[in-house]
Amino acid sequence: MWRSGAWHWLVAVAVLFTLSLLLGDFYRHLGMTVLIMALFALSYNLLLGETGLVSFGHAAFFGVGGYTYALLATKVGTPALVNIVLAPIATALIALLVGYFCVRLHGILFSMLTLAFGQVIYTVTFQWYSFTGGDNGIVGLPAPPLLIPPGNYAVFVIFVVVTCGIALWRLAHSPFGQALRIMRENRERAEFIGIPVRRLRLIVFTIAGGFAGIAGLLFALLNRQVFPDDMYWAQTAQVLVMSLLGGIFTFLGPVVGAFIVTVLQYWIATYTIYWLLILGTILLLCVLFFPQGIVGSLQERLKHRLAPPPSPSPLKGEGTGGGGLVVG
């Protein structure tokens, strides 16, 4: 599976591309949103599931990604391609700055500080009318001519999301990824086996922020607009629900969660405005009865079905069971 990563990548791109050709405008837009949210959720779960850090400010980085593009395009006027490259970099730098302070704290205090930073970023964006347009957002964003036809943009999104997904997958399965899980499981002992916890956390916080920035950039380009609401802390909750629903101790869980939540949101919006009630109910049921999430439970069931006799060759898996979650 590892060496054949390129092969998987090609298949995924091809399948998604075919699907996007078959679908009409509405479903293509939905599909793009799902993919972007999947990337956002994957970046979030790098913190939540892999490292055991509960950030309440992750949506701010999603927003910064989009806003960096929007502000560069409308205020600075740099070429769109340059903006596309600069947006994730700028987001990662801001994540580095925020993370520098946050990673010193643990548990609920870490969550609180990420909330505080996230809300500062949100409030500044929301209130600074002359620069960010306040709650009017920035609409009518220019895009590179090549990406203007929806079909072309779909290809671009598929390409970027799949590439990022594979990069994140490799990260999660590298020694670095294992060190993240080691920190999640037991921060104290991790230090005693030579893992520099704070530095590693800062790196993963920056990486997660950068990927969230890419998702935010794609989202901004998809709708050609950015709004401060994209940064609000409730937005972080949404991506948290996605991760949990899919299964935070599995790599693909957040993708599945993003798919379900996004599709549900589109579908339910036509029937009821009480979306939060549904989101809350899903979250409640997940926490009480389903803490391993969909993918986690499936993996568990599969493991029982196959019931491998204890063999000396260890099975690798993020889904090594367990309901709860360690807050580092």
Partner: peptide, 12 residues
Amino acid sequence: AEGVMQILLTYA
């Protein structure tokens, strides 16, 4: 269960 689950429950 650990702390996060409780946070998430109250958030729900």
